[in-house]
């Protein structure tokens, strides 16, 4: 007994040392970005900033937040993310659940049908033409409909549903529920972890989307946050075009403090999502339903 305890304690110590190391190593980039964003630009240029701000000030944030467009694009991003994620979840769940059933008519076909698109796509021109013919240019739906299902996420979700014990559904089927009712009443409640994961993945996807708004939106009032952020981040970096022409316009350079403050502003809301979702990663979500 004692020996087992000692073993268990050692085990805990070992595990926690690993976790502590992970924290130390992975916290750095974030800490660095925060510190730079709060520092004096000149101290940053001299590479004096590492773990804590040097010459603490909020000027970078003031300059970022005083731009009226950041608030507009904030609002846009939140709308696109919420609506887009909702669409994603509904469509993906429906399709993943169907695909997870071994008896589904044409199951193999549909699996290949979806997986195929992970590897082959027509490229940006035909996509643009489709979006344009559907009249979606300059509309929020141009950002949502073309990525209504992430095939990768679909497969992951299908996989999760396959892993659910079949007993819980069979009992419901005996009670006369059709598969759709089973999905809503029985399966969804025990699938919180995968829902939390998918919500996170999709939300982050929408939050970070940059290229399609760039292509499909023309009205600046509709731009999401990412366009703003990429603009700040990439501007002044030597781009291919600039190195060829040999131009550097110092008017156009942006200090790292402002860049990093923008990063913080752009990522804070989305990284806050996860801690809220964490409570759904509860162990034993299946108990009770399985027992029956």
């Amino acid at each position: 007994m004692k020996k087992a305890n000692l073993y268990s304690v050692m085990f805990d110590v070992f595990i926690n040392i690993i976790l502590a190391m992970v924290v130390v190593v992975t916290l750095y980039p974030f800490l660095h970005v925060v510190s730079v964003s709060l520092s004096d630009p000149y101290a940053v240029m001299q590479n004096k900033v590492n773990f804590y701000p040097v010459g603490f000030n909020l000027n970078a944030y003031k300059s970022v937040l005083s731009n009226p467009y950041i608030w507009i694009s904030y609002k846009n991003t939140i709308v696109y993310t919420v609506v887009g994620t909702a669409v994603n979840l509904v469509l993906t769940t429906a399709m993943a659940y169907s695909l997870s059933k071994k008896y589904l008519f044409g199951r193999k076909f549909f699996s290949i049908f979806t997986t195929f698109t992970l590897f082959f796509n027509g490229g940006i021109i035909p996509n643009y033409i489709i979006i344009s013919k559907l009249g979606l240019i300059d509309s929020m739906w141009a950002l949502i409909l073309p990525i209504a299902i992430g095939t990768w996420n679909l497969m992951v979700m299908r996989n999760y549903f396959e892993g659910l014990p079949s007993e819980i559904e069979e009992s419901a089927a005996i009670d006369g529920c059709n598969p759709v009712q089973v999905l809503v009443k029985i399966v969804l409640p025990v699938s919180k972890p995968i829902f939390a994961t998918m919500t996170l993945f999709y939300a982050v996807w929408h939050w970070n989307t940059y290229f399609s708004p760039l292509l499909y939106l023309n009205d600046k009032e509709k731009y999401p946050l990412q366009i703003f952020m990429q603009q700040i981040l990439i501007t002044g970096e030597t781009s291919f075009a600039n190195t060829v022409v040999g131009i550097e316009d110092t008017n156009l350079l942006i200090s790292n403090t402002v860049k990093y403050a923008t990063i913080m502003v752009a990522i804070l809301p989305i990284i806050m999502v996860y801690p809220f979702l964490q409570k759904y990663f509860i162990k034993g979500v299946l108990i009770g339903s399985v027992k029956g």
């Binding site: 760039l214 600046k220 366009i227 990429q230 603009q231 700040i232 981040l233 990439i234 501007t235 970096e237 781009s239 291919f240 075009a241």
Partner: peptide, 8 residues
């Protein structure tokens, strides 16, 4: 207005 950043 299109961002003049990188190749955008």
């Amino acid at each position: 207005a299109v961002p003049d950043a990188g190749d955008a």
